[in-house]
Amino acid sequence: MTASPLYPAAISSGSLVDPLNEPRLYDGVLGRRVLAFCVDFCVVLTLTAIASVFIVMLGFLTFGLAWLLFGGVFPAVAILYSGATLGGDRAATWGMRLTGLTARAWSGERPGFAIAAAHVVLLYLSISFLTPLILIFGLFTRRKQLLHDLALGVLFVDRGTLEGRR
């Protein structure tokens, strides 16, 4: 494998994440990521609604001062949700778990909280500016990575194949 900006030399040909050696790791990843995003977006909206109820009640106690928090409640919930789930032990959000995906760094390690939080921020920024074109980008990379995945060095693979169940 030759080195390029999209495929760093740090990944050896015998690596866990090489699509030439294990193409099954990336089968159907893009479609499942879209479904996982929809599930996760619904979860974040539900958690945002719950947090909003608390902000409303807190606003009455603080004579409306707490209502200033409404502008940041969705981003805060999204970052905390992704950081806790994607950066957690299973390296997958609830939507990713449902669709059988897991995240790995290029080295094969699980991403931590900081990478997971940065990933969701870049995801929502790229969706805001490049909707639906960010999905087209994944069709041209061997590992089915989107632009924000490449920027952070994150891969999404089939969990069953990775764990040797398929």
Rank of each mutant, 00 (worst) to 15 (best):
12 S>Q: 10
151 A>N: 01
9 A>Y: 00
100 G>F: 03
144 K>N: 12
24 R>N: 01
48 T>M: 11
21 N>H: 15
130 L>G: 01
13 S>I: 09
83 G>L: 09
121 V>N: 05
104 R>D: 08
154 V>L: 04
120 V>L: 08
39 V>H: 08
21 N>P: 11
104 R>F: 00
7 Y>L: 08
43 V>G: 09
50 I>D: 14
142 R>D: 10
139 L>E: 01
114 A>C: 09
12 S>T: 12
156 F>H: 12
89 D>H: 10
47 L>G: 11
3 A>S: 13
43 V>R: 07
3 A>Q: 09
166 R>M: 01
156 F>S: 02
67 W>L: 13
79 I>V: 15
13 S>D: 11
155 L>D: 10
127 I>S: 14
90 R>L: 12
100 G>S: 01
146 L>Y: 03
147 L>Y: 00
34 V>G: 07
15 S>R: 00
89 D>A: 14
56 V>A: 14
34 V>K: 11
16 L>S: 13
16 L>T: 11
13 S>H: 08
19 P>K: 14
56 V>L: 13
78 A>T: 03
12 S>D: 07
96 M>I: 00
123 L>F: 15
62 T>A: 03
126 S>T: 13
130 L>M: 13
135 L>I: 12
127 I>D: 09
111 P>A: 03
98 L>M: 11
27 D>F: 15
7 Y>I: 00
53 V>G: 15
123 L>G: 09
93 T>N: 01
55 I>R: 01
141 T>L: 07
105 A>T: 15
88 G>H: 01
139 L>A: 03
129 F>K: 06
94 W>K: 08
13 S>P: 10
133 L>W: 15
102 T>F: 09
63 F>N: 06
4 S>H: 01
153 G>T: 01
86 L>Q: 09
133 L>D: 07
95 G>F: 11
144 K>F: 07
103 A>V: 06
45 L>Y: 10
107 S>L: 12
128 S>E: 05
91 A>Y: 04
37 F>E: 08
59 G>E: 02
97 R>K: 14
36 A>F: 10
32 R>Y: 11
131 T>D: 11
82 S>W: 10
83 G>W: 08
77 V>E: 07
39 V>M: 09
54 F>P: 09
91 A>F: 08
44 V>G: 12
158 D>S: 05
77 V>M: 07
93 T>F: 04
34 V>H: 07
93 T>H: 00
128 S>N: 06
47 L>H: 05
163 E>L: 14
57 M>E: 14
99 T>I: 07
75 P>F: 00
80 L>N: 04
16 L>A: 13
46 T>G: 13
25 L>S: 10
89 D>V: 12
80 L>I: 13
63 F>E: 06
37 F>H: 15
59 G>N: 03
132 P>F: 11
153 G>D: 00
110 R>N: 12
34 V>C: 13
66 A>E: 05
21 N>Q: 15
89 D>W: 13
55 I>S: 04
56 V>F: 14
106 W>S: 13
105 A>P: 05
97 R>Y: 03
78 A>V: 03
10 A>E: 12
48 T>Y: 02
